[in-house]
Computed example of a mutant assay.
Amino acid sequence: MNMSKLTIPAGYKMPLTNNELQRAIELIHADFQHNLTVRLNLHRVSAPLFVDGATGLNDDLNGVERPVTFDIPDVGTDGQVVHSLAKWKRLALKRYEFKLGTGLYTDMNAIRRDEVVDNLHSIYVDQWDWEKHIDPQNRNVLYLKDTVREIVGCICDTATALRNAFPVLTFRPDRDVYFITTQELEDRFPNLTPNERELEICRLHHTVFLMQIGKTLKSGSKHDGRAPDYDDWDLNGDILMWNPVLGRNFEVSSMGIRVDAAALDRQLEESGCNQRRNLPFHQMLLHGELPQSIGGGIGQSRLCMLLLGTCHIGEVQVSLWDQETLRACEKAGITLL
């Protein structure tokens, strides 16, 4: 069944009961967090739900999404609910004195009021945000690829644990990562849209790391937007996996090696965001006062969807949905939490 924003695969049925589903979600969270901390040498920290809008710490995403903003009379400033913790994490590496080779992870909860909701997207975003202090010599593609393989390994190990606990679940993610840049992808499929290119490359190679997102391609367009002040557009990417239930590409993580002063300078200029140079966070970056780092976000509900074989994100998280989606899911026997 296809509607404007909703896809319900023919014959779809969630393989677990609602009670089993909750236990399976708990297992995924516990097991994946453990795997991530061991493989990447991370430690858990507390994180903000909102930040001061005047600091420049909030993630701008594509630059057009409106943050949820509220006044705080007793503090004398406006709070912004975070879009993500991309910038805050790097500052936290410095403030919490994380040593070289160690890093942090946290539960990130966000509200993205302008999100177009569908099978994969909700206005409520939950992800594991992580950031690691790295040596400047590791600002290279080899280190990026090694880190991607570790994260994919975490996902595969958690999938194994889940299948052992719930044998009715059969999904086996591919450990072998196929690396390709957005330019190489455009060269291979010049007549397709960016979304169609991702679909084709994931159909061919089930686990893909699509690199260099945010750069302008030879065609004059960008594969996708990426804020200029956290990822280095030469050293970033998305982890994409093939979703057999929906029959499509499925983004699990957005990540990258972060900008140094030179990359920030270049990307602010290229994106027409020079006004950000005077913000406190950006001043620290331009003056080399923050650790070099790599980091990313890994969708919690996204990972649960993929490993559990659900067709809608509302089956694994609580959010708000339009009436058309609610009616269609009820008719198809799909329980939205």
Rank of each mutant, 00 (worst) to 15 (best):
L85P: 00
Y124D: 13
L42V: 10
D265P: 04
L192E: 13
R327W: 07
M305A: 06
L57Y: 02
V152W: 03
H133P: 06
I111Y: 13
R139Q: 15
Q33S: 15
E196V: 09
A263Y: 03
T158F: 08
F98E: 10
Q300Y: 04
S122V: 05
E251R: 01
Y230A: 00
L307V: 09
D260C: 04
R258N: 02
Q212Y: 01
E65M: 14
L235Y: 06
P67Q: 04
V141A: 12
R113Q: 13
T181G: 05
Q212K: 15
N35L: 02
G297H: 01
G76H: 10
R188F: 11
P291K: 07
D234N: 13
L199H: 14
H205I: 04
W88C: 00
V38C: 12
T216N: 00
Q275V: 14
S221D: 14
F179N: 05
D238Y: 09
G297F: 03
Q183I: 03
T77D: 11
D31T: 15
C304P: 05
R266D: 08
L100P: 11
V152S: 01
R248H: 13
D52T: 02
D52Q: 11
L303A: 05
D234K: 08
G56W: 04
L268H: 01
H83M: 02
P48A: 03
D187A: 11
D187P: 06
G225A: 09
G53S: 11
H43N: 14
P48W: 02
M14R: 09
V316E: 04
D322H: 12
E330R: 14
K222H: 00
T335E: 11
L307K: 02
T335P: 00
A262D: 15
I213Y: 05
L93W: 03
L279P: 00
H83K: 05
T335I: 12
W128P: 02
T102S: 15
K215R: 13
E196R: 12
H206I: 07
E97I: 08
E131K: 05
G79Q: 02
R44V: 10
Q317H: 05
M241K: 01
D265E: 15
I155C: 10
G288K: 01
R266W: 04
S319Y: 06
G225D: 10
R327A: 15
G153H: 01
E115G: 05
K331Y: 06
I134K: 05
E184H: 07
P190D: 07
S46Q: 13
D126T: 14
Y96A: 14
V177K: 10
H29W: 13
R113G: 11
T181S: 15
N164K: 14
T193P: 01
K94R: 11
E115F: 01
W130P: 01
C304E: 14
Q323R: 14
